[in-house]
């Protein structure tokens, strides 16, 4: 780890958006699977996801970036049309 001399002053984090380097895929027990036929593109899962792991595409459809999904299931709870199912990760 960096010494006090190497760390930026004032505890500043000087690489913007560096949380992108933090992969949490290993944290999951369940992963969300989105049924695009049921999805009404309401965007509630996108709003409620605490990790910003739901990605909104240009055609306003949604998908999950599994590198940042911890498998909490909030998206499933927030979905009114039950388009999201939490499925157990294999090989656990």
């Amino acid at each position: 780890m960096k010494s006090w001399k190497e760390l930026p002053i004032g505890a500043m984090i000087i690489e913007p958006g560096n949380s992108i380097e933090y992969n949490v895929a290993q944290w999951r027990v369940f992963r969300p699977v989105l049924d695009k036929n049921k999805c009404t593109k309401c965007g509630l899962c996108w709003i409620f996801c605490p990790e910003g792991a739901i990605v909104r595409n240009e055609d306003e459809s949604y998908e999950v970036n599994l590198s940042f999904c911890k498998g909490c299931g909030i998206c499933q709870r927030s979905c009114n049309v039950k388009a999201i199912t939490m499925i157990k990760e294999e090989g656990l």
């Binding site: 500043m12 984090i13 913007p16």
Partner: peptide
């Protein structure tokens, strides 16, 4: 422009 994060958890 810098987008530094200031006032962090230590």
């Amino acid at each position: 422009k810098l987008a530094y994060t200031i006032g962090v958890v230590g």
